[in-house]
Simulated scan of single mutants.
Amino acid sequence: MSSTLTPRRADSIENPQLQQWKASLEESAIAHPPGVFSPAFIQETLALTRRLFIQLQRRPSTLVAGIVQPLMWLILFGALFQNVPQGLFGESQNYGQFLGAGIIVFTAFAGALNAGLPVMFDREFGFLNRLLVAPLASRFSIVVASALFIAAMSLVQTAAIVGLSAVLGAGLPNVGSLLLMGAIVLTLVLGVTALSLGLAFALPGHIELIAVIFVTNLPLLFASTALVPLSFMPGWLQFVASLNPLSYAIEPIRYLYLHPDWQFSSIVFQAPWGSVSMGLALGILVAFSLGALALIRPLISRRIA
């Protein structure tokens, strides 16, 4: 007589409560299939985003430094050029008013460029592997959570810079201008965050990622209209600055400070190849962000598959 026990199949369980639970799970899966925009995806994205905010709460110096540094730039650079003759920087009443838009955009750009560092550290410490083996509705929640966190940080920094600029005499844009300003910042942040996350999955370690960040930051700052108008630059640099996505975020924000009655057809600056309207600048920013997302999607799909 054999003493081997044959395990009972799961579908032969006679417990009515277990059968009811199993049926409810199947009905839930049919009604809300896993994937992007499903309730499970939203829940896990919010949970991963909350994790990043908990890390920020434990290290508040990161947020403090992210706010204090651009404010110091605004104060020191504004004081350095406060005696510049009026009209030298276009329609701006003073250099602080001219500089505010550049500080807003560059701060958001720098923060978004660092978005890949937490993911890179998760890779190196093994936490990312735990997420990849977890039963997630979609692993893209890892990417979306990082983007949401960086977007929230950028809005906080932008609010601080706008507030200090108003105190220093740059004025305060109206509500419609502020909303458009926020949309411009978020559009740029989306594209740069996508590129940073792509680098986090493509590069071998955080040393290489930090090197890319250091090499990229200052050249893109000086090859934009953040510090000086396009007309101050030599011809070749004007051409480079007109290809820089930062310029297409800086100039619309600068225009919003000076023109409360803006329109999408308003000309925000003169590029070497022609006039750039508000609508065209926004379109170029949107195209940049969509292009960045399309560029990194195959890479991230392979790495988190």
Rank of each mutant, 00 (worst) to 15 (best):
S2K: 05
T4M: 13
P7T: 07
P7Q: 10
A10Y: 08
I13S: 15
N15E: 13
Q17M: 15
L18Y: 12
W21L: 13
K22Q: 14
S24R: 14
E27K: 14
I30Q: 15
P33G: 01
P33L: 01
F37T: 06
F37D: 05
A40T: 10
F41L: 02
T45S: 12
R51W: 10
L52M: 15
Q57Y: 13
Q57E: 14
R59G: 07
S61M: 08
L63W: 09
A65S: 11
G66Q: 09
G66A: 06
L71I: 02
M72F: 11
I75P: 06
L76D: 03
F77K: 03
A79P: 00
A79M: 07
F81I: 03
V84M: 05
L88H: 13
N94L: 10
Q97Y: 15
A101Q: 14
G102N: 14
I104T: 08
F109M: 04
L113E: 02
P118H: 04
P118T: 01
R123A: 11
G126S: 13
F127N: 10
L128G: 03
A137P: 07
S141Y: 00
I142T: 02
V144W: 01
A147C: 07
A147Q: 01
A147N: 05
L148A: 05
A152H: 02
A152E: 04
M153V: 09
S154F: 05
Q157W: 01
G163M: 02
G163P: 00
A166S: 06
V167R: 06
G171S: 09
G171A: 10
P173Y: 13
N174A: 10
V175W: 15
G176H: 13
G176K: 08
L179K: 09
A183P: 11
T187A: 11
L190G: 07
G191S: 04
T193Q: 04
S196P: 07
L197P: 01
G198E: 08
L199C: 11
L199K: 02
A202D: 01
P204H: 13
E208H: 14
E208I: 12
L209V: 10
I213C: 00
V215L: 12
P219A: 00
P229Y: 09
L230R: 09
L230I: 14
P234V: 10
W236D: 11
F239T: 12
A241M: 00
L243T: 10
P245M: 06
P245V: 00
S247V: 05
R254V: 02
L258N: 04
P260N: 03
P260Y: 02
D261W: 06
F264Q: 05
Q270F: 02
G279E: 06
I284M: 04
L299W: 06
S301V: 11
R303E: 12
R303T: 04
R303F: 02
